[in-house]
Design a protein around this nucleic acid. Sequence first.
DNA 1: CGTTATTTTGAGCTGTTTCAAGCGCCGTGG
DNA 2: CCACGGCGCTTGAAACAGCTCAAAATAACG
Lengths: 245, 245
Amino acid sequence: MNVALNDINQTEITRLRVACSNCNLRELCLPVDLTPDEMTRLEELSNQKRSYATGDYLYRSGDRFKSLHAIRSGSFKTRVLHEDGREQVTGFLMAGEIIGLDAISTDIHTCEALAMEDSEVCELPYSKLAELSREIPSLQRHVHKIMSREIVRDQGIMLLLGSMRAEERLAAFLLNMSQRNAIHGMSATQLRLRMSRLEIGSYLGLKLETVSRAFSHFQDEGLIQVKARAIEILALSKLREMVGK
Amino acid sequence: MNVALNDINQTEITRLRVACSNCNLRELCLPVDLTPDEMTRLEELSNQKRSYATGDYLYRSGDRFKSLHAIRSGSFKTRVLHEDGREQVTGFLMAGEIIGLDAISTDIHTCEALAMEDSEVCELPYSKLAELSREIPSLQRHVHKIMSREIVRDQGIMLLLGSMRAEERLAAFLLNMSQRNAIHGMSATQLRLRMSRLEIGSYLGLKLETVSRAFSHFQDEGLIQVKARAIEILALSKLREMVGK
DNA sequence: CGTTATTTTGAGCTGTTTCAAGCGCCGTGG
DNA sequence: CCACGGCGCTTGAAACAGCTCAAAATAACG
């Protein structure tokens, strides 16, 4: 999956203007109450839509930061790399979510993001977003909220990694995926995971074998039905009990 | 340590105006290049200094969010609580650092912050900060950077929790404390930890006994000298090797 | 339809936790 | 001033969760 090659496709294919006002992710991505005039200006912001094939990098660690990206379709994973080759998956992002917030800090991306399936994103040039959010308070508020939400999310993962055991972590993961599926109007019980056991393990701080065993054990207990990456949740409430809520 | 009681002290004692231009933490807390006029306006922002005794809450989970706080002296820990009583320390914050970013997301604090020693903070009312950062682009940029830096920091902790073993985690912790000590012009090798083994353990996802054993082992290896919470680092470079950098 | 990647499962091993006991330090009260 | 109790820290021994290594089963893919 070559990024340069991909770039060629984009210039050919995705010259379409992106109209936020028509986007069905409007509510998730930039849900601010805007006047018609403000909406017009917002649409000038994100006039670029880009496509990425499975495995393509959206950005790499060390890349110069220019834009945030709103995921329009598909999904990405983000990961941080350690000098010694260790890696940690820090997030799985799906449609409607904003990616790249880490890089505002230093203007350099500190983690990398790759497409887990063929995906599309709206580019949101940071300088324009900053300018616009100086002029539209509700947009400013929203940008702050997005960043703060990311901090809260990360703290939740810290809680998970720091104080839960393997099966609790997996239960929390499944519930999270279920919830986010539901937000997109999809089934809360039928999940089609886009990531491998290895990636889930990295995210949850577990080895892939442990993830696999936990899946099998949940199935034996009648909590879920596992068919490779297709998971059916049979007992949502019992999973909730496992993570203590 | 009663917060109400503490409030009385504040109204008596700390009516002092806070002059950012004279604050020796200026560089850390809000280091933006401002014109004299802008600086004056910034100082109107944070005119409240508050004191907290050891163990006092700066805020609790569920509290309504009004202000961020810049730590002027002392230190705080933040923690998230789980419904089932589980808790996770998510950060140790010291002078010059900004606390409370998690709450912007929902206007409600999702974690709680307590003073680990007698401490002072500058209150930064969020609405004023937002207003001012709409008018001063470099301040806006700085607010974004602070939030982004928090995200990067959290990702680093996720890496630590997800893929390091006990002694690597402790080494990373000591190096981090050393570095932050140095930023404040203090020794990079003489640390006076403000937190217990239990709190370190919670932060690092380890039991307190494991933390204690790791300290002892480091001492046996000649990496550090341990006298309860006073730690002397004897071999910084070896600690760095341990975490692979 | 063969080849490769992913997933499952088993068996043994290891790092971390658990449980338990002892030590040192500090503040309180006799 | 010393005894006492409490708290935080250290240390040991045993238990256990999750890891490693290995192999087989299954799914994905050209």
